[in-house]
Design a protein around this nucleic acid. Sequence first.
DNA 1: ACCTGAACACCGTTCAAGT
DNA 2: ACCTGAACACCGTTCAAGT
Lengths: 226, 226
Amino acid sequence: MRDTPRTRPAKAALSYDAVIDAGLRVLQERGIEGVTMRAVAQELDTGAASLYVYVASRRELLNQMFDQVAGEVDLGDEADPARWREQVEQLLISVLETMNRYPGIARVPLANVPQGTNALVIADRLISLLRAGGVDARSAAWFVDIVFLFVNATAYETAIYVRDGSDSGATAAELEAYFNHVDPGRYPHIASLGPLLTAGDGDQRFRFALRLMIEGLLHATPPDIP
Amino acid sequence: MRDTPRTRPAKAALSYDAVIDAGLRVLQERGIEGVTMRAVAQELDTGAASLYVYVASRRELLNQMFDQVAGEVDLGDEADPARWREQVEQLLISVLETMNRYPGIARVPLANVPQGTNALVIADRLISLLRAGGVDARSAAWFVDIVFLFVNATAYETAIYVRDGSDSGATAAELEAYFNHVDPGRYPHIASLGPLLTAGDGDQRFRFALRLMIEGLLHATPPDIP
DNA sequence: ACCTGAACACCGTTCAAGT
DNA sequence: ACCTGAACACCGTTCAAGT
C-alpha cells in the first residue's frame, strides 16, 4: 500500500543509498523536522530500528543527506579572471537555490562544519574564483567561511518562512503591516524607513548582501594574521 | 513585583516573569535543547502543565526569553557622526556577546522574525547609527536585516561548537588537522590556503566580517527599489 | 549479516479533577 | 483562578530474538 512511484521498485532492498534517498524524499515532503527515523523507515516500508544498520544516528543521516544535496550544486565554469565576480555571485546563488529545494537542510551545515566531499568541492571552487580575482589568500580564507555562513542562514530562514506560512509566527503581509505601523515616538528611525524595510524579495536582498560582501572584500584591509 | 532572583526563595510563586527567568537559567545550564517544558517546570518545583497558564507554547516561551536577552544588550552612546562606524561595530559585537551568554538563544531570531520591543530598540539604534554615517535609506533598511541574520548565525554556530566540544562532531583541533591534510590533488585551492583557513579566533573573524559588510555598504550601489 | 518488535527514557500538549 | 497528575501521541536509540 505504501508506494511512492518515482524510482523505487515496489520492494526496494535496504541500502545506504536507499536510506539517504528516502530521507531526502521525506525532507522535501515534510521539511527537516519531519525527517524522523520513523518517517524515513516508513518510506522504506520498515521499522526505525532497521535504519541503524546504515546510519549511526539521525545526526549522521542528516549530514549524509546534506552532502548528497551539496552534490547537486551547479559549479558553473572554471574560473575566468575577466568575470570572476559574476561567477562568485552565480555560484553562491546556485548553492542557495539548491538548498531551497530541500527546505531546512541548511540547518545541517549551520549545526556542524560540513566535511563531506561535495561541500569541499564547492569551497575549492569558490576559493579558485576569488584567487582568480586577485583576492589575497587571507581574505579569501576567511571569506569562504563568512559567506557560507550567510548563505546557510539565508536558506534556513527561508525554509522557516515557507514552512509556517500562516499557522504560526507571522506572514510576510503581517510583518509588513507590523513594521509600517511601529510607534514613531519610540522607534523613530524604523518608522522613517517605512516600507523600505520590507521592500524587495528574498532574491534581491540576497544579491545585495553578496554585493556588499564582495565589494567589502575589495576595499577592506586583509585580516591581520601571521 | 518584579523580584529578580539570583537566589530564588525556596518556593517562589509562579508568574510570567518567574517562568521566563527559570527558562533562562535552564538555558545557561543546559543549552537551548535542554530548555524543555519539563526542565523549566522542575526548576520551579512544579509540573510542565503548570507553565501553560503563563505561556502558550514552548515556542512562545523561547520568543519571550529571547526578548529578555535582547534587553541586556548594551546600546552604547547615541549616534555620533564622527565615529559611527566604530559604533556600528561595537553595537553588533555587544549583540553577539550578549547572545553568547545564552548559548543557542540565537536559534530563536533565526527561526522567526523577532517582534519583541527590545529587539526593535536595537534595530532602531542601528539604523540611527547608519543614517548618522550618511548611509542611504534603502541600503540601511536592507543592511539591518542582513547583518542581524549574520550575527544570529554566528552566535548560533558558536553555541553548537561550545556545546558538543568533543562528544560529537569535530573539535577545533580536529578540524584544523582535517583542513590542513586535505588531498591537494582533488582540492588544490583549499590545500594552498593551508593553515589560513583555520587561523584566528571567532572574534577576529567576526570583526573582519563586519568590516567587509560596512565597507561594502560604502562602496556598493544602493538596492534598486522604488 | 541483516532485519524486527518491543521496550526505554524521553518530548509537547491537553484535560479532567482538584484547590 | 490557578495548579496538577495522568494520559496521549509522539521522539531517538537499544537490544534480544528472529531469519
